[in-house]
Design a protein around this nucleic acid. Structure first.
Lengths: 191, 191
DNA sequence: GCCCGAGGCGTACGCTCGTACATTCTCCTC
DNA sequence: GAGGAGAATGTACGAGCGTACGCCTCGGGC
């Protein structure tokens, strides 16, 4: 029996504030008080809308991973040949490891939680599964799996480097991992 | 002018306790009190031996990354052909992503710090640099860089999966990324 | 035998935190 | 306009925190 007085945007604004705060100070720096201040809501709202810290974080990372994977699917969906898919993958690597610290930080914070806690590992598994399925639009499952791992590693390393590697290196690595296996029983490409 | 009464093992024991505590509760769960209790030293020792929380963490992760990279170098140093090197790399991936949650957790905690703070990024850069140099004992620099990223991605993804991928997939990915480039100007192998 | 200085430690201060809960507010019903 | 139900909030409590700092302890110099 909603009276209509409730503010449906409030939860969303709180989640937004949580993500911003994680970027600025890390999961460790998130507190109900800081989130409330940033979202412009009273402290009491925090316990009213969320059962506790954990629901807050879980919901925030659910939204975040959903956003990232959507970009991934969109870019790969727009490709219509394996070569276009390779280009899209290179774009994604360089987008993820580019200037935007935001996604990098949030990803690592999530992985750190996932390494210890099953509820968050579930989140990363869903994410990985959807990424792979998108890659399988263009490549066979084994290749998709390898390529997914390569994307991960290239993005992380590139973001941590003093002099980020150039696009040519990314492109070459992608070409190698998706190259048809000369001696193997199957080709890597589908399209 | 040391009087000889100082306990040189104390610092080490404290660092050990810090790493154990990070594994159990994460960087966020580390406090002077908990570390002191675990190391069996009085609380006052913490501020006496370390300037603060940050020195504690930085020293702990310095030791950790040194340990990991030493294993890496040892395994790759024992290989004398590119094929043996490939086997060693596969071993390392499956060792890192195997049952031992410890190294996985510590790695992610470090990366999370590195994503936000330059002092820790320096640590990861040194680590990456040494790993690459070890890979360059067997492969050319560009391949070493790509392989290093692949190792990272495979380890992370394998550790997060419900059903970790089998060795064959790892081996295939390594073979692909280190395969001599048929059309390229240079082979990937050195040895 | 006495003292002194460095090594080592216990304690207390000031702060932030999560959360429970009594209270206030707002709008609908009659 | 009175009443009430449910939404929203302010506040206070108990706990844990980092760290500063005064005190103790003890080996060595004389």
């Amino acid at each position: 029996m909603a009276t209509g007085r409730t503010d449906p945007e409030r939860r969303d604004r709180i989640i937004d504030a949580v993500l911003d705060l994680i970027v600025d100070e890390g999961v460790a720096g998130v507190s109900h008080r800081k989130v409330a201040a940033r979202a412009g809501v009273p402290l009491g709202s925090m316990t009213y809308h969320f059962s506790g810290m954990d629901e807050l974080l879980h919901e925030a990372f659910t939204r975040f991973s959903g956003t990232i994977v959507a970009v991934f699917e969109e870019r790969l969906g727009a490709a219509s040949t394996p070569d276009e898919a390779r280009e899209a993958v290179a774009d994604l690597v360089h987008h993820l490891s580019g200037g935007n610290q935001r996604e990098l930080i949030l990803t690592h914070e999530l992985y750190t939680l996932a390494a210890r806690r099953p509820a968050y590992r579930e989140l990363t598994r869903t994410w990985m599964g959807r990424s792979r399925r998108a890659l399988e639009w263009h490549f066979d499952p084994a290749t998709a799996r390898q390529l997914d791992a390569l994307i991960e590693g290239l993005s992380i390393h590139r973001a941590l480097e003093t002099e980020p590697h150039e696009r040519a290196l990314t492109v070459e690595a992608i070409a190698r991992i998706t190259a048809p296996d000369p001696a193997g029983p199957r080709g890597a490409e589908r399209g």
